[in-house]
Computed example of a mutant assay.
Amino acid sequence: MLLAAASQFWWAWLLLALVAIARLPQVKGWLGELWIRLVLAVGLDGKSGRVVHDLTLPTADGTTQIDHVLVSRFGIFVIETKNMRGWIFGGERQAQWTQKIYRRSFRFQNPLRQNYRHERAVAEVLGVDPEMIHSVVVFVGGSTFKTPMPDNVVRGLGLLSYIRSFREEVWSEDEVEDMVATLEHGGLERSRHTRRAHVEGLRERHSAPAAPGCPKCGSAMVKRKARKGVSAGQEFWGCSQYPACRGTRALQ
């Protein structure tokens, strides 16, 4: 009797299994990126630029994985997706933000800082001034901002409004096509091996000694490489808030 009753509600067990799978971090991330793919595909017409998804670029200390890069005549937008629920607390200069679900709180890296690495990688591959790159963080999944957020941190469809707020043409159609081709050529193959190597690289990097604080503003610092002058090619610590802060430290 019990087995027969359970078999009649197989759909309920299947639904519970799907809900459990959807809550896995990797699956949540994939669903969030899929949603933004649809938003960009439907919300932007063909003249609004071209999007490169799931782009993994080599860097000086490993690789960096970028959810979406929109290259348009009005700018280059590096988009980081966060599929989260609950209340979100954070500030532009804070190293850690907070997600609160009922009475539980979780800390996570400031996504603007996370996207900073992506911006610099895109700028280096394209050979453009980093100032020409626009960082955008978009939250999906029913989250609510409980603190004021910068204009480039949006929820869901707010991504389209932010992109459309840029109306001055800075690139020609030919330049857009060339940059998209450069990104595709410079990116690593989209494969399980690439993703596994990237994750392993993240683990090694995060297990390394913490970066020093900026001597000027106290923010975390990141490794950079001098491009000009007598120190060209040499690495140094640079403030993660550049260009707002230009603090530096020599590598020990």
Rank of each mutant, 00 (worst) to 15 (best):
E131P: 05
G201W: 04
D178E: 15
S191Q: 12
W171G: 02
P209M: 10
P150E: 06
F145Y: 07
E124G: 02
G156P: 00
R120A: 05
P148N: 11
F166A: 03
G142R: 13
H118S: 05
A123C: 10
I163C: 11
A121E: 02
D129H: 10
E169H: 04
W171L: 15
R120M: 14
R155S: 09
S165L: 04
V122P: 01
G156F: 01
L126I: 04
Y162M: 09
V138M: 07
Y116K: 08
G201T: 00
V199N: 04
T194L: 03
E168I: 05
I163H: 00
D174L: 07
V170E: 13
A211W: 05
V180W: 07
M132F: 10
Y116C: 00
A210S: 02
T144Q: 15
E200H: 13
R167P: 12
T147F: 08
G142H: 08
Y116N: 04
S172A: 13
A197N: 07
M179S: 11
Y116H: 14
L188F: 08
E184W: 12
D129W: 09
A123K: 09
L159A: 08
A123N: 05
E184S: 10
R113E: 06
P209F: 11
D151I: 05
P148D: 05
P148G: 10
E200Y: 03
H206G: 03
A211C: 07
F139Q: 01
A208R: 15
G141M: 00
A211E: 06
D129T: 06
E131N: 12
A123V: 00
M179A: 15
S207I: 04
E184I: 06
